[in-house]
Simulated assay, not measured.
Amino acid sequence: MEKICEEFERLVQIMETLRSERGCEWDRSQTHDSLKPYMVEEAYELLDAIDEKNDTKMMEELGDVLLQVIFHSQIAKERNAFDVLDVLRTLNEKLIRRHPHVFGESPGYSYEQWERIKSQEKGSTKTSAIGELNKALPALSLARRIQENAAAVGFDWPDVSGALEKVKEEVKELEEALQNGDSKCVEEELGDLLFAVVNIARFSNVDPEVALRKATEKFASRFKMVENFAKERGLELNKMTLEQLDALWEEAKGGE
């Protein structure tokens, strides 16, 4: 534990030096706003490392995420707002407060209790079981969270089959909207379909954000293979028929 404290203190001191007059010009110029893209980027790079099951890369990316925390804390300290000690203290107190079944007398963990404590912390006058919409979340993650809250009070399908039937129903309604050519209706029905698909992901213990990212990466990989096949045969994609492109696509799938 002593070594952990030493290394953490060293990290804080390094950041203070980088932000000082004798520090790095780039680091000194950063603000909370300018750093926002880096926090998102580092978080997704960590997810990639986890997916790859690469411990060395994961260790490095966790460090990069921690760097963002220290960076923001140092900027806040310079504004006399808070410092990294305040961040740590607040986190420790929140962890203890949200786990009364470990640090208190509560008999055991429950999702409802977790959400109730969160609501109390935020001073929410919660009138709905689904809570407040956390608009900071990506749309797929937000949908899953809302569904989890609704399910916690019993508003849920008995099993995944009900969710699957709902997807089929939404597909039909989307088809009708497309036939009618009403863009607003298409947007609504497409949203309903995506929301229904998230329900299947939730029942299957699959993160819809991760699933969509992997599907996108798979598509990109196959498309590059199609491009390579076409180039090897002296073909130009924009001059090929859909049937020819589909044949190369199937070949790419087989090559995986």
Rank of each mutant, 00 (worst) to 15 (best):
N134D: 15
E170K: 10
A129R: 10
R97Y: 02
V167H: 04
D159H: 03
S141L: 11
Y109W: 14
E105C: 13
G108N: 07
E165W: 06
D159K: 00
E112K: 12
D156E: 03
D156N: 01
I130Q: 14
P107D: 08
R97V: 02
P138V: 07
T127H: 09
S128N: 15
Y109S: 03
E121Q: 13
K118L: 04
L142C: 06
E170Q: 09
V153S: 01
V102L: 09
L95F: 04
Q113K: 07
G104D: 06
I130D: 15
A150S: 06
F155E: 06
A143S: 13
E165K: 14
E170L: 07
V102H: 05
G104C: 07
L142N: 09
F103L: 13
V171L: 12
G154C: 02
V171N: 04
V160P: 01
I146K: 11
Q120M: 10
Q113F: 01
I130K: 13
K122V: 08
D159R: 06
R98C: 02
L164F: 15
F155Q: 03
P158S: 01
S119V: 02
L95H: 04
W114G: 06
E170R: 12
K122I: 09
R144Q: 11
Y111D: 06
V160K: 08
A136E: 15
I146A: 09
H99L: 10
H99D: 04
E148D: 11
G108T: 10
A163R: 00
A129H: 11
F155V: 03
Q120Y: 05
W114P: 04
P100N: 05
T125S: 15
R116W: 11
E121W: 07
A152L: 00
H101W: 13
K118N: 08
L137W: 08
T125L: 15
G108Q: 11
S141H: 04
K122Y: 12
D156F: 00
L133Y: 09
G162K: 04
N134E: 12
Y111I: 08
V167I: 14
S110L: 09
T127L: 13
E148N: 13
L164N: 11
E121I: 10
R98E: 05
S124K: 12
L142H: 10
D156P: 00
R145Q: 12
E115T: 08
F155G: 00
G104S: 10
I146Y: 09
S110G: 06
S106P: 10
V171P: 01
G162M: 03
V160M: 08
L142R: 14
S124H: 13
L164E: 11
H99E: 11
A129V: 13
S124F: 11
G108P: 08
P158E: 01
A163L: 03
E121D: 15
K118A: 05
Q113H: 08
G154L: 01
L95A: 07
G104H: 05
L137F: 13
P138Y: 03
S161G: 10
G131P: 05
E148L: 09
A136Q: 15
S161Y: 12
T125W: 14
L137H: 14
